[in-house]
Amino acid sequence: MQTNYKDVSEENYRSHYTKQDRAQVRRVVRIMLWAFLPLALVDVLFHEFDIPLAILLLMRLAGFSYSLWLIKQYGMEENVPRLDRYAMHWIVLVLSIQFISNICLPRDYLGHYMVDAWLVLMAFISLPLALNILRIPLFLFVAASCLLLLYKQSGTFSQAASVLLIMPAVAITGHAIAAYVHRYRRKLLSAEHELERQANTDPVTGVANWKEFMRISDTELQRHQRLGKQLSMLVLDLSDFKHINDTHGPQVGDVILVEVSRRVKRAMRAYDCVARFSGEEFFVLLPEASAEDAVKIADRARATVVAMPISVSGKEMKVTATVRTATLREGDTTLSLLRRAGEGTGTREQEVPQNVNLLPV
């Protein structure tokens, strides 16, 4: 059964494959560097030593030099759109030089069309550029090459017909393969993002799970300690959730958990991290929040959660919650801050439940 994942944006797609694409472009350009030598030899063999040959060789030398410069840029430059422009300029330059060389070759010589077909196919399949941009110069090159055939005096009709069929066929085939590769890479990236999301989120509520919360907390704690900023944590415990779950079943419990998580997120700031730790416990990381700020947020969260009953299958379920907070102290670790938040150390809460479970279930 085919699974449809959420499509990724063009920006995420390009940024994810940037390293691979940069290496791919360097490989393609290096291959073309070797191709400049036999192509220049063809120019020498079919032309007399005069001004047109000198111009062609200078153009080949310019293409060779630009290729070397492009390889260097793809090893240094970090601006991806700028690199894409450089690569487009390169392929346009290579195609232009090749087409001018084809014009100057004898009118009864059709061997250059093999090189043209190879160039088009290689560019489509190997260059990791956006197809809506790449296909413009390549299809124009194919069309111009087919028009050039009308100028050529080919030996037989079958030769001309073969060229007229092969060149468009190669371009269409290369475009189709490149489009398939792009779609495959996008689907692969979408699947990776979905697997990452599932590994980092709670399957019931969609908020962060214990693993992701610990990762974010470790990062934020180190950042706040380095900058000397305050950091707090908040623990929200649904006091009567176990009774509701045992009485009405886990499906009703899941509905309540989803609604509570939505209310908690509404009460938090945009950059706070909400996570579900166990059956009825929600932990919230409060960056740049003092003890006073944490208590205010805790009061707002508790009021938002218990403000209205939760409707489940036509029944109104009232929930009660206990909220506790803890603020970062010198020498604290993520686990010690979690433990103090779970025990309610340093808060104004009156109700402090015992045996708070700090491990996920």
Rank of each mutant, 00 (worst) to 15 (best):
L257D: 13
V260C: 13
T156E: 03
A275M: 06
G253P: 07
D332G: 13
D299Y: 08
C273Y: 15
M214V: 15
R302V: 03
A160P: 01
T325G: 05
Q198K: 13
G206T: 12
S261P: 02
L105Q: 10
A161E: 07
L150V: 04
P203Y: 05
R262G: 07
G228D: 07
F283R: 01
P128C: 11
M32H: 12
V323K: 02
I133N: 00
R266I: 05
G346S: 04
L61T: 06
A326F: 10
Q222G: 05
I91K: 08
W90G: 01
C273W: 13
Q222L: 15
M122C: 09
L68K: 14
T219M: 10
A143P: 02
L234P: 01
L95K: 06
N102F: 10
Q354P: 00
L61E: 06
A178N: 08
S65Q: 01
D7N: 06
L70R: 13
A294F: 12
V295A: 06
E194F: 13
S313V: 14
F99W: 09
K19V: 14
T320L: 04
R269K: 15
A179K: 10
L110T: 10
D43W: 04
R186A: 10
R183V: 11
E196K: 14
C273A: 06
Q98K: 08
T201E: 13
L147T: 10
D43K: 08
E330D: 12
S126E: 14
V235T: 09
S158A: 08
L119Q: 02
E78S: 12
P168N: 00
S232N: 06
L227E: 12
Q350H: 04
I172R: 02
W118M: 03
L164M: 14
A270G: 07
S145M: 09
V80C: 06
A123L: 06
Q225D: 02
S336R: 08
S67A: 15
Y86E: 01
E330H: 05
R30Y: 06
S65F: 08
V170P: 00
F99T: 01
F139C: 03
T327E: 09
V170N: 00
V25K: 03
L110S: 12
R14C: 05
T304H: 08
E77T: 08
V170T: 06
L105M: 14
A23I: 13
D237H: 02
Q198L: 15
I166Y: 02
T325L: 08
A169P: 00
L147R: 07
T325Y: 05
